[in-house]
Structure formats: structure tokens, C-alpha cells
Computed example of a mutant assay.
Amino acid sequence: MQLTQNFKLPSLYLRVAIGSAYLWEVADRLGVLGAHGRPHVGWGDWPHFVDYARQVMSFLPASVIPALATLATIGEAVFGFLILIGLFTRQAAIGSGILGFCFALAMAISFGIESPLGYSVFTLSAASILLASLPSYAWSIDSLLSHQKINKQLSIYQDKNGVETV
């Protein structure tokens, strides 16, 4: 029990850091954070993001880049949201780890190893894998659903065995 207690805050911190990072990037490429060229805006719109994706995946056929950019964005939005709210956390964290690792490899191939290291993309991938390996996720929908399931099973057990509840 003590081990689980020690992971409550780090688990929440990992979820917030990973989830918000993904959602921030998705918001940027969809123009929510402002127009391209504004301070603290990386892409500002979809066309600028797709241009960047072409650079990152320069070793792939140009015709597949828009589809892969779309899939990556959908993955980041879904994984980010699920991790942030703590629903299907383990599965979303595994997907996030794989997506981050693929992105880091693509950056390393196209720009050199210093790019994914400098932007901490391997770190995001590793943090996601670490999150997936934690035993539980405090303050999450997963935790709430788990407690409800346990309470329901306990209630069924008590009913079957004639145990009175107070």
C-alpha cells in the first residue's frame, strides 16, 4: 500500500505534463493559440504544421505526409485528452510512448540526433512509458471506475453470503 501512496503525486504530475503538452501542440497547429508568426506560436495553422511534418518525415514519400500528419494529430489529441482526464490511462500512455518514439526517430533521421534530444521528444516518450508502468492512477476516472467496480463486487459478495451492511 505504501508503494501506491508514493506514486499518487508523480502519477498526476506525469498525466498533466504529458496530456497538456500534447493538447497544447494540437491547439497550436489548429490555430487556437494565435496566427503563424505571433509570439509563442509554433505553427499557427494546419498548412504550416504540414510543411513542418514534410521536413520531419522527409525520408518518406511526400504523398503520405498529410495523412500521417493527420493521424499523428488525432493520436496526440486523443492520447493527450485521455491521459489528462485519466481514462484508459495505461493504454493511452503506451500509445503516447510509441507515437513519441516514432516522432523522435523521424526527427533524428531528418535533422540529426540533437533535434529530438534538444526538444525532449525521447523524454516525452520515456515519461509516457513510465506512466504506463505505474500500478494505479490517483485522481483519475480509471481510479473512480475501479473503486466502483470493487464496491459492486463487494456488494454482490455480501448479498450472496447474507452479510448485513450498516
Rank of each mutant, 00 (worst) to 15 (best):
residue 81 F to G: 15
residue 69 A to G: 05
residue 65 I to T: 10
residue 93 A to W: 09
residue 103 F to W: 03
residue 110 S to I: 10
residue 135 P to R: 12
residue 131 L to Y: 13
residue 120 S to F: 14
residue 68 L to T: 12
residue 77 A to E: 00
residue 99 L to N: 14
residue 82 L to G: 06
residue 137 Y to W: 13
residue 99 L to P: 15
residue 125 S to I: 12
residue 93 A to F: 06
residue 115 S to E: 02
residue 67 A to S: 05
residue 111 F to N: 00
residue 74 I to E: 01
residue 80 G to Q: 00
residue 133 S to E: 01
residue 77 A to I: 06
residue 113 I to K: 03
residue 99 L to W: 07
residue 82 L to Y: 06
residue 111 F to H: 10
residue 87 L to C: 06
residue 65 I to M: 08
residue 89 T to A: 04
residue 106 A to L: 07
residue 136 S to V: 14
residue 95 G to A: 05
residue 132 A to V: 15
residue 73 T to K: 02
residue 98 I to V: 15
residue 94 I to G: 04
residue 77 A to R: 11
residue 133 S to N: 05
residue 64 V to H: 00
residue 67 A to M: 14
residue 81 F to I: 09
residue 64 V to D: 00
residue 136 S to M: 10
residue 125 S to A: 14
residue 138 A to Q: 00
residue 105 L to N: 11
residue 98 I to H: 06
residue 91 Q to H: 08
residue 113 I to M: 05
residue 117 L to T: 11
residue 91 Q to I: 13
residue 75 G to I: 09
residue 136 S to P: 03
residue 109 I to N: 13
residue 116 P to S: 00
residue 133 S to P: 11
residue 110 S to Y: 07
residue 71 L to H: 11
residue 95 G to D: 01
residue 72 A to F: 06
residue 130 L to F: 10
residue 128 S to H: 13
residue 97 G to H: 15
residue 75 G to S: 02
residue 74 I to A: 05
residue 72 A to R: 03
residue 135 P to V: 13
residue 79 F to Q: 01
residue 93 A to L: 03
residue 138 A to I: 10
residue 106 A to Q: 10
residue 131 L to H: 09
residue 92 A to G: 12
residue 112 G to T: 10
residue 80 G to W: 09
residue 73 T to F: 03
residue 102 C to T: 15
residue 79 F to R: 00
residue 89 T to M: 00
residue 101 F to D: 06
residue 83 I to Y: 12
residue 132 A to H: 09
residue 136 S to G: 09
residue 85 I to R: 08
residue 89 T to S: 05
residue 113 I to W: 11
residue 106 A to T: 14
residue 105 L to F: 15
residue 113 I to R: 09
residue 71 L to F: 15
residue 109 I to C: 05
residue 130 L to E: 05
residue 85 I to V: 13
residue 107 M to C: 07
residue 93 A to H: 00
residue 128 S to M: 12
residue 76 E to W: 08
residue 87 L to P: 11
residue 65 I to Y: 07
residue 127 A to Y: 15
residue 120 S to A: 03
residue 88 F to C: 04
residue 116 P to Q: 02
residue 88 F to K: 13
residue 110 S to P: 07
residue 122 F to E: 04
residue 76 E to K: 15
residue 108 A to L: 03
residue 105 L to E: 10
residue 89 T to H: 01
residue 75 G to F: 10
residue 110 S to C: 00
residue 82 L to C: 11
residue 123 T to H: 02
residue 125 S to K: 13
residue 82 L to S: 07
residue 77 A to Q: 10
residue 133 S to K: 06
residue 83 I to A: 01
residue 79 F to C: 00
residue 68 L to K: 10
residue 122 F to G: 13
residue 107 M to E: 03
residue 82 L to N: 10
residue 130 L to G: 12
residue 102 C to G: 03
residue 96 S to T: 14
residue 73 T to C: 05
